[in-house]
Simulated assay, not measured.
Amino acid sequence: MTSHDCGTPTPSFQIISSLRYDPELPRVTGSLPTDEYFPVPRHSPYYLLSYHRDRLINAAKHFQWDEALESLQKDLSVFEDFLNSAIENKVKSWRLRILVDRHGKGLVEVNPVGAMDCWNLLVPPLHKSVPDVIWNVYVDSQATIPSGFTTHKTTARDDYSAARARAGITSPADTSEVLLVNPDGQIMEGSITTPYFRRRVLPESHDTSQPTWVTPPLKCGGNAGTSRRYALEQSFCVEQLIMSAELVDGEDCWLSNGVRGFVKGVVILT
C-alpha cells in the first residue's frame, strides 16, 4: 500500500473490505487446538486478515486494476503494517474499512466498535457463548440485478442502500438485515451480511454428517465475503440455491460478516 490518501479515483469507486480489530481475538484463536480451525495467521488481532487481502486482490483482478493488484500482492506483513499504521490505540476494538483505488493507493477508516465475545467470530459449532441478540431478517421487495458491484464489495453501494431503505433499516447499528433477491427470485446475500439457512434438500445418501446449513452460491450474484469463505472452509455450510418463495416466516438463520462474526437471525415475512 502506498498512501492513506486516496485522492479521486478513476472511475469513481473504490474496492473495499471491512474487518474487526480486536486485541482479545488472539486469546480465543490461540486456544484452538490446531490451525485447521482458523486461517493463518491464527494469532492476529485482525479478524480473517488474509481473507480480506485476498478479497481485495480478487476485486482488483475483476476490475483489471493492475496498479492496485501489484500493491495488494505484496507480502501479507506489508498489508498488516498498513493497517497497524492507522490504529493509534491498540488496546481497544475497532471497525476498519479498507478502501483501495485503481492506482493502489489505500485509505483505512477506523471507527469504534462495541465490545463482544470473540468466540462469536468463530463458526457457530465453535461458539462458547449463547447469542444474546436475534436479528430480524427481511426479504427485499424488489429485485437486484447481479453485477461486478454485487460480487465484489465496492463503494458503489446504491443497490444495497435502496434495499435497506425499502426494509426500513435506517442505521448501521440496527439489528436488522434485508436479503437481496435477483430477478430469478433467488436469494443473493444480505445487505451487509452473508446469510445461512437450514438445508432444504438433503444429499441422496442421507448422510447425516453433512452440514445442516446452506448459503447461496456466488452464481446468484452475491458477494464473496470473508466470513462466508471461512464458513465454507470449516464445513459449517454448503452452497445451495435458496428461492425467496421457499423462506418461511419465523424460521431461524445465521448471518455473518467481517466485523460482527456470526449472529443469529429470524426471517420476518409479514
Rank of each mutant, 00 (worst) to 15 (best):
A60F: 04
K90Q: 11
G190S: 06
C220H: 11
E189W: 01
P41W: 04
F13N: 09
H43N: 10
I169A: 00
D75R: 12
R95E: 04
T215A: 03
E80F: 06
C253N: 03
S93V: 08
T208Q: 13
V78A: 06
F63I: 15
V263P: 02
L218C: 08
S93Y: 02
R200E: 07
R166H: 06
H152Q: 11
L96Q: 02
L48E: 00
D207K: 15
M188D: 06
W213M: 14
S171H: 14
K219N: 08
M116D: 01
V130K: 15
E233I: 13
E88A: 14
A86E: 06
R164N: 10
E189L: 01
L83F: 00
D252L: 07
G30S: 07
I192K: 05
E239N: 13
A173Y: 13
H152P: 07
I268S: 02
A163F: 04
W119G: 00
S3L: 02
V263Y: 04
I134K: 09
T208G: 11
L49C: 03
C6P: 05
P41F: 08
L179V: 08
G114S: 08
E177R: 01
D174S: 10
L49F: 10
R198V: 11
T215E: 00
F149M: 05
Q142P: 03
V139Q: 01
V137L: 04
V78K: 14
T193D: 03
L241E: 05
D159A: 14
T212M: 10
K90H: 08
V263Q: 13
D101N: 14
N182D: 05
T212H: 09
Q73C: 10
P203D: 01
N120F: 09
S18C: 14
F82W: 15
Q73G: 03
T29F: 04
V238H: 02
A224H: 12
G265L: 03
Q64K: 11
R198A: 08
G261S: 04
V28M: 04
T215H: 08
K74D: 07
A245D: 12
P11Y: 13
R198T: 13
E109N: 12
P211V: 06
V214W: 02
G261V: 01
T29I: 02
P183F: 05
G104F: 02
R164V: 09
L32W: 14
W135E: 04
T154I: 02
